[in-house]
Amino acid sequence: MNADVGFWILQSLNALQLSMLLFLLSIGLTVIFGLMHFVNLAHGSLYAVGAYVAAAIATGWGYWAGFFLAPVAVAATGIVLYLGLIRKMRRSGPMAQVLVTFGLIFVLLDLTRILWGDLPLAIETPALLQGRINILGIDYPAYRLFVIVLGLAIFAALAFILGRTQVGAMIRAGVDNDAMAACLGINVERLFFTVFCIGCALAGLAGAVAAPLLSVAPDMGLQILIPTLIVIVIGGLGSLKGAIAGSLIYGIVQTFGAVIAPQMASVLIYALLAAVLVIRPMGLFPTKG
């Protein structure tokens, strides 16, 4: 009985850890969409770039250097993309955006292959977070716990920024109605740019965090893209609440699905997505405008 309870606690923590990783990715993507109405399919590729940068830096200067520099490097990549490509695509329809960023996936995929080769890289968990911590009566890997805490911390920080600060109010105004926001004297263009960079930095952070958990391989961006898209579509494009709700739903369905009904686990999440789209075509927490 006791072992049984421990098993479910373990699965719950695993679900939470997966949710937090997805949250780091989906929050950037969803706010970029909400604010700019821009669909960036290459968001997953930015995450892969983050993982590679973190892995490359970690081999020389240790994990923490990679952890802090990967978001910076990915934000820099984001700036290049924004100035060179995405700014021009803002007024195009979703079709053109999907295609251009799909092309970008190809480009980034092969660039990482050229720079780092086809073989997966492994990266050590940092010394500080090795070992296991006893929590709720079970031993849980310290690093995974760190991912959960980090995710929750970022969620709290973003909720504070979006809910309580001037910048947050500007972003919310922009999500609701960007023309109106411009009328209120908000520099919408600069706001977009900032949000885009932060979204990219968070994707890079997610890559750095995921690197020790998964093997760092060229197709990891493609692998994570679909779950991320599912999260934001279930949650409702453009919504912070939706991103956290979608992440939790995905993490729970995926983790417990694999335990309870391994046959149907991955079909389950797609069926759920389809059901959400049929019943609430704009997601669980639709944004206005």
Binding site: V233, S266, V267, Y270, A271, L273, A274, L277
Partner: peptide, 24 residues
Amino acid sequence: RSHGIYFIMATLAFGQMAYSYIFQ
């Protein structure tokens, strides 16, 4: 009933559902 990006995502979901089903 879905349009734009939602239509793209909805069809993607069904495609992936088929993929997972066949795979598993």
